[in-house]
Amino acid sequence: MSPRRFALLGAALVAIGTAPSLRTWLEADMARHMLAQFPLLILAGAAFASALPSRTRGAVAAFNAHGLAGLLFCLLVSAFWMIPRALDQALLSFPVELAKIATLLAAGGALQLSWRPAGLVVQTFFIGNWAWMTAVVGLLYQDVSTRLCNGYLLDQQVVAGQGLVALAIVLPTALIALLAKRGVLAGDASETTQGRPTGSTAQ
């Protein structure tokens, strides 16, 4: 896809996630808020990053060896917006809502710019950390008998929790399946280097 198309795709995803009436609908339910709007914004950020010219990408890479800074940012952003109070604040305060949209877009962009440079080991470490964190939060959402968010109902919280646990299982599984398909997991050390995507040279 051309950079222009990526930019258009990003803009379309942002519009779906934040257009006034859609935003209200998405945020009216805790599960839709976390499991539909968040991914939309993250994907939009990734699409925008794909539209960046290679000079900008090179400049970012200078601060992002092995994608470490970008993936750290992604982990922190995704952990932050799983805090019940942060979700509540996003509903009640417009500046917090803006910060939420901006950081999720930025996390999507960071993910796109960091994933390939990260290489197999850092990728696996990142997904593993993200998955157990998300699974624990998802289990907590389902386990507590009180409402964690003042803005959401208890049954929505349970659905959101189930969704987070499902994501925490599906994404690492998908990564392993992808690696297996590429033949990276055959067990030969030389193949591991082979399987490393190109573009991991940025330091």
Binding site: L76, A79, F80, I83, P84, R85, A86, D88, Q89, R147, L148, C149, N150, G151
Partner: peptide, 16 residues
């Protein structure tokens, strides 16, 4: 940011 939203790592919910 985490410290701000959690009132100095003391709460995670708005109610608390």
């Amino acid at each position: 940011a985490f410290s701000e939203v959690s009132a100095g790592f003391r709460v995670v919910t708005s109610e608390a």
